[in-house]
Every structure is written in C-alpha cells, then in structure tokens.
Amino acid sequence: METYLFILFATLAVAAAIGMISSKDTVNSALFLVLNLISVAGIFLLLKAQFLAVVQVLVYGGAIMVLFLFVIMLLNLSDEEHMLSRFSVRYAVGFFLGVIVLSQLLYAIASVTGTLPQIHPEMEQVGTVEAIGDALFTVYLLPVLVTAILLTAAVVGALLLAQRNISDKVNK
C-alpha cells in the first residue's frame, strides 16, 4: 500500500514540478507548485512526519503560495514564452548543468542502495507535535527566538521595499 501511495505522490510531485517549469502561464506555474507541495506533504505523511506535513500544507501551500498568486495577480503579468519555443545557449547551459547535477546526485544516492534501513521504529513518536515542540522549546530555543527576529526583519524589509511610493523615475 505504502509503495503505491509513494509512487502516486512521487509521480504527482515530479509531474507538477515539470509542469511548473514548462508552463507558459505564471499562474499555472504557481498552481503546479502548490500541487507539488501538497504531494510532498503526502510523502511526509508516509514518512510519519505528521507535524511537518500539516505545516507544509498550511504554511507553504496556504500562506506562501497565496502570497505568490496574489503578487502575480496584482502585477497582472503577461505570459512567458514557452520554454522550448526559442532554443538558446542559455537553455543549453541550463540543461547541461542540470544534467550534471542530476547525474551526480543520482550517483551519490545510487551508491548507497541497499544500505539504508526502513523507517526507524521510533519515528512514530518523533514526528508528532509533542516531540517537535519539545525539541523546539528546549534545545532549539535560541534558534526559535532567532526565527522571530528573522521574520520581523523580513516583514520590516518587505514594508520598506514595497510600501512607499516610487518616485518619478518610472519608465512609462
């Protein structure tokens, strides 16, 4: 059963990712990314990481991607040309680099085939809200506080950049 679910989610995730980078329409790209995120959340569930699966859907799929969609709609962006419609050196280099990176990673991963064990039995406990909350507010208390500052900084920064009126230099 798990295997089938994995294959389902994995196929969805990869298909959505490919759809995202090959789509002409920015909105479609964003929606594909949402699909991808949700599939990955499904895989998190398979890995017994319940908390992260929920957070993934809520924060990523919900908040962040809505922000993306909002900005795309706000700017009313025109469609982009299809990725393969105009072949250029840029694509070739990108593709080439991608292939290199992929092959290296696959090689790295293939070389450990058979050495990795099944999901650790303790995982049932580890992935819960309690376990993560426990770790977050004991060992990782300092990083959590840092995250508070990080998010504050991000908000202040976003305000700073987007809030004030842009002066006369806009090209019309």
Partner: peptide
C-alpha cells in the same frame, strides 16, 4: 534576507 532589502534600499534608483 536583511541584505537583500538593504541592497534595494534606494528603490527609486533602477
């Protein structure tokens, strides 16, 4: 992230 913001600070300059 803070530096990204600082880099774009004078935002009326292209």
């Amino acid at each position: 992230i803070s530096l990204y913001v600082l880099a774009g600070l004078v935002k009326n300059e292209k």
